[in-house]
Design a protein around this nucleic acid. Structure first.
Length: 589
RNA sequence: GGUCCCGUAGUUCAAUGGAUAGAACGGAUGUUUCCUAAACAUUAAAUGCAAGUUCGAUUCUUGCCGGGACCA
């Protein structure tokens, strides 16, 4: 059993025996003891002090003595400082932990595995992926890995926004300005190629609007009347009518974009079990509106538009079908939710989508629940904050978007330069080197984007390159490679040891033992940053350990064997932690 | 107008209501005859403002100031 759980249950039991009170184990607060005090784990007594009417000193002594008597094999001693009861755990417990842990029981044990769908990435097909998509992709991938480490089954999906006015804009611009050029002709990645025409559309549009305003038209009217804008709208209409020529061009341009996306996904390591296309799903959900009307979840206004009243839930009234009978954005989302549920029958469905859609997803979940669609309680919106520049939001129209491909390439290039200047892998062949640069460059980028709480917006300064030192992916990768290098020399036999532990040896064991709890917490809160922080702390602790204590030349054979085992466990935990973030760890670097 | 989110060292981030608010980068100072110095050690530096609840508040409540998102 988990040590902290054990302590909590013991505390609860002893409080009951001593004072006859019932305090649930979950109510007991157990923390790691701060380094400046003696002990390994601390129970915070204040909560019980009031309830029992005893001084912290008396309560601490009575409880400490009782717990020591209850579990002498586990606890060696205790002390009380103010309202804090500090326990020292027996070295034998940690020695047992060190020598009986292997890569399997390193991980949490899931009682009831769930089947979870994760929808992430959701690109538009009118422009290439940017930094915001990277945060999205890395988050989605990482959550999937974390849930898998828990033993859950994961279905990764992607919804591609392949239709609508935005792609029509690229199409119009291509018709006007491309002279039939293709990505092959221009030797460009297809998504960048199509994205360039989207920019060209906006430039032309802006020029037309200015011209109209100069002729005396109001800004609003000019924006509506600009010829290129009207052409895009006309094209959308043709698309909706299934016009053959329009469909051909649309398919052709989307294919270019998909080819480009494939390259990027391949490079950053993203994949999907199933991809949905909005062109196939945008008409979904219509019959659900009728069902909702029949169930009186929705109501109809005099003008025939259909609404849902969410004021009881603290939200507004929301339209689900326009008066002309066309559906709105949320209707297709409800339809797609139902479709996905029918196809995969998952227990939960996680949507990795930016926080500007918080309201939308609140509404989506509520409507699904009210319609009593299966598993609608399992809808989660993993809402993440925007990635902003020091100057504010990234805007494609102003050319301040940080392109995903450019950034990834830059990171790999920096990894290459850094590796070359250190010259530690001179005998690697070309393929090994390329793989290493990729591992390190992407590791730095992924860690950078995953180390902060997803809910919070984050600032990225393109002027400062992403660091390779300190709280970074390469720091952890380096620690892993370093351990592997030592283990290559010492061998990896697990020889049982006895005796007492030095403070750093024990600290490392304690840190290692919390890994399953960290994974569980990250899974519960859908927050990979918990894993990033833990993994960094573990690597940091090992580096201190490494600087203080010798492994290969330990003071005794016993200590050498102990530290080898600590090294094995640390390397394995670092590897699993980084895997949870979608980051590979090299054997050498 | 309504709803929601965010303000912590110079900068980027931590801190289930708990002990002296942690890290990293940047700054200063050290550590390579010895297992990978992408490392380690020492050091200066912060809770927007004002109340309230509490034994105890970065955390909860209210107001204000500042930044952002969404809904019409």
């Amino acid at each position: 059993m988990n040590l902290i759980t054990n302590l909590k249950e013991n505390t609860s039991k002893c409080l009951h025996t001593l004072y006859g009170v019932n305090i649930a184990p979950e109510q007991v607060l157990v923390n790691a003891t701060k380094p400046e005090f003696e002990g390994d784990y601390t129970i915070v007594l204040f909560a019980f002090v009031k309830q029992l009417g005893k001084s912290p000193e008396v309560l601490g002594n009575e409880l400490g003595a009782a717990m020591l008597a209850q579990a002498p094999h586990l606890i060696s001693q205790f002390n009380i400082v103010k309202g804090f009861l500090n326990f020292t755990i027996q070295d034998t417990f940690w020695l047992d932990f060190i020598h009986t842990t292997d890569s399997k029981n390193l991980l949490p044990s899931t009682l009831t595995p769930r089947k979870v769908m994760i929808e992430y990435s959701s690109p538009n097909t009118n422009k290439p992926l940017h930094l915001g998509h990277l945060r999205n992709n890395f988050l989605g991938w990482s959550i999937a890995e974390i849930l898998k480490l828990q033993g859950n089954e994961v279905v990764k999906t992607c919804i591609v926004n392949d239709r609508g006015i935005h792609i029509c804009k690229s199409m119009i611009a291509w018709q006007l300005f491309a002279n039939g050029a293709t990505p092959q002709d221009t030797n460009q990645k297809g998504d960048h190629f199509v994205g360039d025409y989207y920019v060209k559309f906006n430039d032309a549009y802006k020029a037309e609007v200015e011209e109209l305003i100069a002729k005396g038209m109001s800004k609003d009217d000019a924006e509506k009347e600009a010829p290129i804008q009207k052409a895009a709208q006309a094209l959308l209409l043709k698309w909706e009518q299934g016009d053959a020529q329009t469909m051909d061009l649309w398919k052709r341009m989307n294919e270019w974009v998909y080819a480009g996306f494939d390259v990027t996904y391949q490079k950053i390591g993203s994949d999907f079990f199933k991809t949905y296309y909005e062109s196939n799903t945008y008409l979904l959900g219509k019959e659900l509106v009728d069902q909702g009307l029949a169930k009186k979840v929705f109501y109809q206004k005099e003008d025939n538009s259909v609404w849902i009243d969410l004021t009881q839930d603290g939200l507004d009234e929301k339209i689900v079908r326009r008066k002309d009978g066309t559906s709105v954005y949320i209707t297709q989302d409800i339809g797609l939710a139902e479709l996905k549920q029918k196809e995969f029958n998952t227990d939960a469905s996680i949507y990795v989508v930016g926080d500007e859609q918080n309201y939308h997803f609140k509404v989506l979940k509520l409507i699904c629940q009210k319609l009593q669609l299966p598993a609608s309680d399992g809808i989660y919106h993993l809402s993440y904050g925007m990635v902003e520049l020091p100057t504010g939001k990234m805007k494609s129209r102003e050319g301040t978007v940080v392109d995903a491909d450019d950034l990834v390439d830059a990171m790999i290039q920096i990894a290459k330069e850094k590796t070359e200047s250190l010259g530690k892998v001179s005998e690697f062949d070309e393929a090994q080197l390329l793989e290493l640069y990729n591992t390190i460059g992407l590791g730095a980028l992924k860690f950078f984007l995953l180390r902060v709480d997803p809910k919070k917006k984050m600032i990225f300064n393109p002027e400062e390159s992403i660091d390779f030192h300190g709280f970074t992916g390469p720091f952890i990768q380096y620690t892993h490679a370093r351990i592997k290098s030592i283990l290559k020399k010492t061998g990896t036999n697990n020889v049982k040891t006895t005796g007492t532990l030095l403070p750093l040896e024990k600290q490392l064991a304690i840190e290692l033992s919390t890994f399953p709890a960290v994974i569980n917490e990250a899974a519960d809160t859908l927050d990979p940053s918990k894993v990033a922080i833990y993994t960094f702390n573990l690597a940091k602790l090992f580096n201190t350990f490494y600087a203080e204590l010798s492994i290969a030349n330990a003071e005794s054979e016993e200590k050498k064997n102990l530290r080898i085992q600590l090294g094995i466990l640390t390397a394995a935990t670092l590897q699993k932690g980084m895997q949870a973030l979608g980051i590979a760890v090299p054997e050498r670097m």
